[in-house]
Simulated scan of single mutants.
Amino acid sequence: MIRHATPLDAAAIAAIYNAAVRETTAIWNEVEVDAENRVAWMNARAAEGFPVLVVEEEGSICGYASYGPFRAFDGYRATVEHSVYVRADKRGGGRGRALLTAVIDHARTAGRHVMVAAIEAGNAPSIALHEKLGFARVGVMAQVGQKFGRWLDLALLQLVLDDRPQP
């Protein structure tokens, strides 16, 4: 079941986030967060009209997704960047696809025009999932990040959400 997150989900969201910080190159951050931090993050998202969605199975949060501003300048207001994270033991079962589809649908309903995906270039499963859902590769930025003592490349993909000829 996919639903909007509540503060009661914050500890589970923090645990998924922190595992990605410690174990993957999906998040280019080295600082872990706590439930209070995630509640503040969810409140900030909600204040701007952005969702935080969770996938719940048998009372357990298996993953979460959100989107927010792509860049802070007015000219980018119709463009958003998303994040999707699934607990390691629940990957590969369609949960990431379901969450990504849900945030795409939310962004379309909210009148957004483009959704950007910024993915560590070596994350072939994530890139493949995005392409299956219609995202197009638009570039790779070489060595723009670092983690675990190595440089990371950033693959950029985008999905045009509507066919408006003008904003």
Rank of each mutant, 00 (worst) to 15 (best):
E120D: 11
V138S: 00
A128N: 07
N18V: 09
V114I: 15
A118P: 03
E56I: 01
E30W: 05
F73C: 11
G134N: 05
T24H: 03
F73S: 10
A124P: 00
T101S: 15
V52H: 04
A124D: 11
H82V: 04
N29P: 00
V84A: 12
K132T: 15
A117L: 01
H4D: 14
R77E: 09
E48A: 12
N29L: 01
M115V: 06
A155Y: 00
A20Y: 12
A65S: 13
R97F: 03
V138E: 04
L157R: 04
M141N: 13
G149I: 01
S60E: 10
C62E: 13
A26F: 03
R45W: 00
Q166P: 03
V103D: 11
V160Q: 10
L8T: 13
A46H: 05
V103M: 12
K132M: 04
V103K: 11
H113D: 14
A5R: 03
G111Q: 11
A46P: 00
M1R: 14
S126W: 03
L161P: 03
M141D: 09
C62R: 15
T101N: 09
A5H: 04
E23A: 05
M42A: 10
A47N: 06
A40M: 00
R97D: 08
D163V: 01
R22N: 06
A98H: 06
R91N: 09
L99D: 14
Y76R: 12
A47V: 02
I27A: 07
V33S: 14
L129Y: 09
